[in-house]
Design a protein around this nucleic acid. Structure first.
Lengths: 193, 193, 193, 193
DNA sequence: GATGAATGAGAGTTCATTCAT
DNA sequence: TATGAATGAACTCTCATTCAT
């Protein structure tokens, strides 16, 4: 463990714990124990547990969106690219260590008043929506803004439930179903290529 | 407060608190204070907080499914009945005291090992799926089992994300979007009436 | 379960629990559950848990002393009868369900102020001492009162530690050692027969 | 109250309470109140109440064995040294704050499954046995291992019952009786000096 | 004679955070 | 910069006993 970047190290340790055990079930003591640092060291780098939580959410989101974009780029134009988010999700599920959506789960654990983290998550989900809108725009010809939002919104809704329901039912049928249903969202649209 | 049925009274009080504040954020002390009973009285009726949680989930589910069925019966045959679950959800949202899906939220709050509550929630969601399957069967003519499952599953996925995303974004656009997208799931099917 | 003698039934159930689990570790609820009676029924027959404890001690003592006397009567006069208490103890140990001395254990569990139960136990132990004194008188010729007390007291001390130490070490070497040492207590005495 | 060594301070306070009132009768709340520390401070130093109990047992044993050895060294060789443990016990009784054997009492208070503390107590008693064996070896000439174990075991049994019975009967006759009987254990042995 | 719901007091334990060093 | 001892507040749960029925 190099201490040159302790902050990153803490986030890494906390991320794993938060995602696998839950935010509330993970105590500060467990984080410092697994990080092998002193308690005050943690509080030197982070104002509060909530701050670690935000760093955790930001890191997960950044990695996720980056990987998704890369994955999308590799897919063929048209229909494959439009529904490749479900393949990406299926891969995540198969790789193990799948515990559903960190954002939704974290939101559920926090008191409803927590505006700070809510704002972070809302922004992240909007970024995902925006990206899906770009994918739709890239792969459907002559499409209006309204249509773009409708289709990308549909993919978004199917994706969000696919991840949550797969986690709930401990089975990936929601992913496969969502993937098979997605094309009906743009059945009448004119795909590029 | 009539003490003729304390058990029900406790569940009512706990339900409200669990749903609005969250399961972990609601302590036993708050439940007994709001219920105006002694701590040991609560534990006389419920073995543990987990047991209250299960009673809460069961009650919510029973009320929800009952009301949904009643609401569906009132809708016109065909397309209206197929998508009326989104109208039902919109009504719930408008009536206030909407805090997303109690089942998903509760699941997020519990340690991943909690098989007991997971099983309850899985069963409840399967009951919803079954009911949606019946609605599809009642309103689409000459439909195979596979098609039924696909369409009802689609409605289920859209409903589940509609409720979660509406809660997340504090806006009912996911409900309206889901409702407008649902018909594309059975665009080629032959509706009754 | 015949309810003709509920009181006895309760004592039987409580005795087993007290002896195997300990007095404090055994709750009233467990007693009524295992007795299959109502809580108020228990309190109808016993004023308090302490009262059940006394009934438990009295029953154990009565059974023990009765069986010991019977066992002693069967032994041959002289040395065999003088040390047969250790054979009796070894038998108890071998029969299983041996958990040390109920009196000493119970005394340890109660607050030092509890004069009531202390008195009961002191009396019981004195009865044992008295009986051992009779055995000594029966088996040693021309013995003074002082000598009788010394020898019976010695047997008593060896017996008491044999039972406690056997329980502590989970091994019956203290019983065998005590039995082998006891004769040195009356090495110079003149045994009958 | 110097807070330089809080851990020791807690053990001291708990020791007194455990020994005089009993383990179960002494609550964590009482320990922290008498220690004048916060509850979380106690749990910072000790994992559980059981851990404090072990520290209590270890401390008592260490002090006891140390003092007993010192006391034995001061006694004259031969018979005085062999039976001086009873004088040591009588002194303890006279000094007040005598409440029997902490180990036996604690064992009686714990559920039979508690292997951890049982092991500690068994080890401690074996250390006492070992020490008594050394004393026997030092004071009896030409003695075999078997004879050593028999005599030291006898002293051990008499000592153990002397302490327990003195506590039970609230009278030191068991100590005096045990002391007077002990020499019969090595009546035929050849003492040094 | 028998019921079981209700209780007040307390149990042991864990939490995120602060502060003197 | 880094430490870890100390904290107050909260946690879930259990106890022997009583009382109206």
């Amino acid at each position: 463990m190099q201490k040159t970047n302790i902050k990153q190290h803490i986030v890494n340790v906390a991320s794993k714990l938060f995602y696998t055990q839950g935010y509330n079930a993970t105590g500060i003591n467990e984080i410092i124990a697994k990080s092998e640092i002193a308690k005050a060291t943690l509080y030197h780098h982070f104002k509060s547990k909530e701050d670690i939580c935000i760093a955790y959410l930001e890191q997960r989101h950044k990695i996720f969106l980056g990987a998704l974009k890369e994955f999308t780029d590799k897919a063929n134009k048209g229909r494959p690219q439009l529904i490749c988010i479900f393949d990406y999700l299926r891969n995540s599920y198969r790789e193990g260590e799948f515990h559903g959506c960190w954002a939704i789960k974290t939101l559920s654990e926090l008191p409803p008043q927590n505006q700070k983290i809510l704002t972070v998550i809302q922004r992240q989900k909007k970024e995902l929506l925006l990206f899906l809108g770009e994918v739709v725009g890239d792969n459907i010809a002559n499409i209006s803004i309204a249509e773009t939002e409708k289709i990308s919104g549909g993919i978004y809704l199917l994706y969000e439930s696919a991840i949550t329901e797969t986690h709930l039912h401990k089975n990936d049928w929601p992913i496969h179903l969502a993937k098979s249903l997605a094309p009906s969202l743009f059945a009448e649209a004119q795909l590029v290529n």
